[in-house]
Amino acid sequence: MSAESLQLFCTFGIFIFMLAAIGVYCMLATYNLIRALIGVELLLKAVTLLIVAVGYITKHNALTQAMVITFIVIEVVVMTVAIGVVLGIRSHTNSLDARDIRNLKG
């Protein structure tokens, strides 16, 4: 692997790690369900970008693009179902706060 490719991967890796950290922090720090989903979305975007970056440095762009397309389809389906669940919770509890759905706790 050339030094230039390694340098590019390291640069992208640092920023991808930062993006993933923002997503994880958002999920951990908020009680709002929609905001938590936004955190999940940021984390998924970091993973997508990592796959594309690895495909670029290993010159397997075609394979990684096919994987990313599949990944994006899965991402959208997960988001759609999660938003459906959030709307269901909203209609039952009249709130988007995760603390209001602790009925099963204990």
């Binding site: 970008l49 594309v52 970056a53 670029y56 762009n61 990684t64 693009q65 990313v68 994006i72």
Partner: peptide, 18 residues
């Protein structure tokens, strides 16, 4: 960024879907 990393089809998917 995806477009710049030689992944135009994935970039179009990301742009249109995400």
């Amino acid at each position: 960024l995806m477009f710049r990393l030689n992944s135009p089809i994935a970039a179009v998917f990301e742009l249109s879907v995400c």
